[in-house]
Design a protein around this nucleic acid. Structure first.
Lengths: 244, 244
DNA sequence: CGGAGGCTTGAGGTTTATCAAATGTGGTGG
DNA sequence: CCACCACATTTGATAAACCTCAAGCCTCCG
């Protein structure tokens, strides 16, 4: 179990952006990967720690969390199956943020020595993995734009558009619907709002017939209008396939 | 002039994080680099374009700009000498943001073919360049935390702390003072505020004796108190030197 | 069936935006 | 050198967005 492991979500995410040779896929499959599961709420990587391996999500949703001295927190990214959550830990020694499980999780861990060796022996594969990291950066830029210049309502709408496309990529969403076992209070920490305001803003989107969001699921009722309202431009997700 | 060019700021920024061999420095120096200058306000890279080269700043300050449909804009990053502004354009085909000159600029451009070749032949050098890109991502996370959970005043204070350390790195700042020919309205677009509020918030920092900011210069009068007020933790700038 | 946590709603307060106008600053042509 | 212009900074007044506190309800789970 420590070596051969089904990392299909990662492969799918990579192949959506680039072409991988059989040899490259074999290198990835070989790993070695270490499987690990977490309960909702668990701390996966601690802020300030110096990890020696990085993890890919197979199931569940994580958040990157920056904590302030008064205990409040900001979630700077959400991650879904296929995402390389902390690839950057390979190059940035000390974690500038923590990683927390927002739902029950399954993750696959790979050592930094292995990743370094991939960069030495398989330059194209390493560039493709780096591409995921750069997409991650583009998503962060989109969040900055939402936080700085969009209304709370547009920001929530934008987040749902983004999450749907990212989840659909690996099959975790379809028909404009996806499982979403994350509390409004957690979303508040991602959007820089209070949980009360997230609730009101969600009701606004519901009232306009754009989404439903109940229990542990979200459905987008009118994709085109949601996209238009959020001014959502998917360019930053880099969904076009091209050999690099 | 197209080949041999003084890219000292980049080398300094890299060597602050890692050790470069003479061979690696020679590869970097060889480029080929293409020198280019811009006036303040010039568009350096257009949002939506597909550049075939990336640029390093030798002099001046640029901003990454995301424009909204109503003409408002959010600046998602500021860049200073030594920064590889759009290294990610190598891996992300279409620019999700524009790059604009906020002051008069001198830049050095290197082709993506060259960078790709570096990743094939000089894996460690490529990882070191990628490290700059990952630091860039960490800075974006810090901005997200500031936008989402800090007061406008703390956000401005945090920005000055960040900029001072980044400028000091390549010698563009010293003695807690640096040239800063950027308008309050531009800073407003970076902090997600109105220019009126930036002005009020700046006066607050002045009133507390933490900074001066006049004409085209900033001086930090009390670094320790400014850091404490902003809850500034420089971990995200990855200023510790270590061989990777 | 009881408790805990998440969701919803209301009231009142704070932060920040917007609009408008006055003042300061640097550059340019006469 | 001065008059003038464009643009940046500053100040004031009002409005909108969002927060905090508080309470009630709902859902899930033991």
């Amino acid at each position: 179990m420590a070596t051969s492991l089904d990392i299909t979500p990662l492969i799918r995410s990579l192949e959506r952006r680039d072409t991988l040779s059989d040899a490259e896929k074999a290198v990835l499959a070989r790993g070695p990967w270490r499987l690990k599961t977490y309960a909702a709420g668990a701390e996966i990587v601690a802020q300030g720690s110096e990890p020696k391996e990085s993890c890919v999500i197979l199931e569940g949703i994580t958040g990157r969390v920056i904590r302030l001295s008064d205990g409040r927190r900001q979630i700077t990214a959400l991650h879904v199956p296929g995402d390389f959550v902390d690839f950057h830990a390979l190059l940035l020694r000390v974690m500038d943020h923590g990683v927390e499980a927002l739902t029950p999780m399954t993750t696959a861990w790979i050592g930094h020595n292995t990743l370094r060796q991939i960069s030495e022996d398989h330059a194209h594969l390493f560039r493709t993995l780096s591409t995921l990291s750069e997409i991650d950066g583009a998503i962060q830029r989109a969040w900055i734009a939402c936080l700085g210049r969009r209304s709370a309502t547009a920001n929530l709408a934008h987040l749902f558009c983004e999450l749907y496309l990212r989840l659909e990529l690996t099959g975790a969403a379809a028909n404009f619907s996806f499982a979403f076992a994350v509390t409004q209070s957690t979303i508040a920490d991602a959007l820089g709002l209070s949980s009360v305001h997230v609730n009101r803003v969600a009701q606004e989107l519901r009232g306009w017939g754009l989404i439903t969001w109940e229990r542990h699921g979200v459905t987008i009722l009118d994709w085109d209008r949601l996209v238009a309202f959020a001014e959502f431009d998917p360019t930053f997700l880099n969904l076009k396939h091209e050999r690099r």
